[in-house]
Design a protein around this nucleic acid. Structure first.
Lengths: 206, 206, 206, 206
DNA sequence: TTCTAAGCGAGACGGTACGTCACGTCTTAAG
DNA sequence: CTTAAGACGTGACGTACCGTCTCGCTTAGAA
């Protein structure tokens, strides 16, 4: 999934310098298209190869699985998520609501919904893929929340003794669970209420 | 002209009165064994049938997929989950911690962990299965939490204006997310802290 | 395929006196219809039973196979072929041509063609069925030819020393082979030429 | 855009240049062995594949059915039957008797008998297979007879006006019918008598 | 005239084989 | 050595029928 950096370290597999950029792009494009058309589960490596006009071996040479290809699709799209940052207007509740409302809108988009579910499914039995998704997709998002909460902590908006990991989970966990289990629809009203309730648990004591 | 007893059903499939209890039990037992031995992903319908000494068609006649079989295994084990109830000692925090600590222990059992992950994965691309799991496995659990919180609400322990669905999610969502994303280990200390923080958000105002 | 005659001889199977005539007729009718619609090869015992509104077991109770059923269909239709006799006008060539022309017409009927081919196929790997077909369907036909040739022999039309079995085969074998192998179409002209040539081989010497 | 070398063919199926000779031979060998051991009817594509150490798909890729495989077995054995020729000693009767006696011996060999019967059965409901068998196995044989008879015609041994197709059938049809219907055993004596009788019908007039 | 054993319709059962799909590896020919 | 193409061995899929085996129901014969 990641480019190898040095050709002489241990057993290296194919030489990345010889990799065909044309083929790489064709594969990622084909995979992205297929994801939209048939979804992750019904997508096959053979179909990606055929659509990309690429030999199957070319896929297997450079990616560990179709999940790996998809991960690269997203890493490509999101610029590896490195510069994610939440708004910080000084009003924590408002900032969180804005972000979560945007997230609601995203997850109500069928393509994003399907893709995220596919990732969730795949993560369960492919731990290398899970690790990669966690680091490249999830962690940056959670870190952004954590940074915003730390800022609020420094501003005295929330309890300085609070475990920020738990605080982040208090905001994202309920949302994530409701989405994943489809127990109820995701709406702006819902995330507003969620933020209000969660923040009550974070207020400075006294 | 058919003289079945249930006149209001739509397409009913095979007549359940003729179903062989012996075969049903053999399939569920075989599936449970295989789940423990090879895990859900490597389990096949053919293997279940072979181990159960049953024709494949007998499985396809009564279950929609191997996931359906596994769902029945669990429904069987948990007594269809109808009478789940949380302890109610009058101390909400203590009760919730006790329950969540037990859940931590469960999810740290590799077999349960693997199975729950397999279910989570399967749910993502099989909506009929998702519906069944939601109703038979998830809903009863969440309802039990909700009932306990309602009791606490009536006892004046928590804010009477609180949306109980959100309250339940505040307790289970973070746990569920941490487990699913493996962002950090599940420990008794974690759930204690989680309960304490979440409950701070639920206290009666004033 | 044949009715059992005595209820006390050896292992007798089901009691023929209790046999349901309604079911028997329904099966034969259904089988005949299916033969015309899908042909013998694609016909299944299940389909016969379903079409006849009969349990599969009822078929297996009274017939050894679907071929057995079909044989009964034909035995029923042809009155067991007992009274077959060729015309005898005194002109052997004319009589044979008339009969063979009629046979050409029969075998050019698609239903008869398909049925006869199905029998031919089935005979190859079911020797009990082969025996039954041979005795009930083939032998009477060949005997009729033989009788007509014997009559011609007595009338001095053909060589008294001729082996009549070979003589019959000389007339029917070529026809049968051409039909079976589809090497050329079956026409009235063909059988006329065949009869003429074959009879040249049978003339009295001198 | 595909750059295959045969530009005039219709839908061609897989590229025969890529075909694995090893797999092809293994399949034919396995099929031949199984034919001898269990016969055509009890032979399955799965068994051929297993014995050959080949995937089922490899069989389905190159042959339309198990009958197609068997046809190739025979085409392989008989050198595609292209150069069949009957002996021509100048004595037509003797030559025909020699050939037919040899054929009697062949058909009295159980393996050949069973195989020929299986082909006969298969031909009845698979017209593509029938066509192939007719062209590759039957036609060359019949042509050889026809050539020998033409030679005899030119030598003045038989009637120059005779329809040679009928003449061939007069010799092979009776034999074929007797074999197929098992009305009587195939012996050297029988074919001798058959040849004698048939040739009487072919003599030059006068 | 009732009783009772059978045949009956229905169709589930344990099996076998089917023909298809996709996997991940291997082979070929071209560049 | 990489590439496009695609054949290969493998293994599971879900379906079709096989012939056997229960189920209740009906039905005809002997009691």
């Amino acid at each position: 999934m990641a480019e190898r950096s040095a050709p002489t370290d241990g057993p290296v597999g194919p030489d990345p310098r010889r990799r065909s950029e044309r083929a790489r792009r064709a594969v990622l494009t084909a995979a992205a298209e297929l994801l939209g058309e048939v979804g992750f589960a019904k997508m096959t490596v053979e179909a990606i190869a055929a659509r990309a006009g690429v030999g199957k071996q070319t896929i297997y040479r450079w990616w560990p699985s179709k999940a790996g290809v998809l991960l690269d699709v997203f890493t490509e799209l999101t610029g590896s998520g490195s510069e994610e940052r939440l708004p910080d207007t000084g009003d924590l509740a408002a900032d969180l609501k804005a972000v979560l409302r945007a997230t609601v809108d995203e997850f109500n988009d069928p393509v994003i919904d399907r893709t995220a579910r596919a990732f969730t499914a795949e993560i369960q039995h492919d731990s290398a893929f899970a690790e990669a998704v966690r680091e490249q997709q999830l962690r940056p998002g959670l870190e952004a929340y954590k940074a915003r909460l730390r800022s609020a902590q420094e501003a005295g908006e929330i309890d300085p003794g609070l475990d920020l990991d738990i605080a982040v989970e208090l905001l994202t966990g309920p949302f994530h669970q409701r989405w994943l289990q489809r127990t109820a629809p995701l709406t702006h009203g819902y995330v507003d209420a969620l933020v209000d309730t969660a923040l009550r648990g974070m207020r400075p004591p006294g």
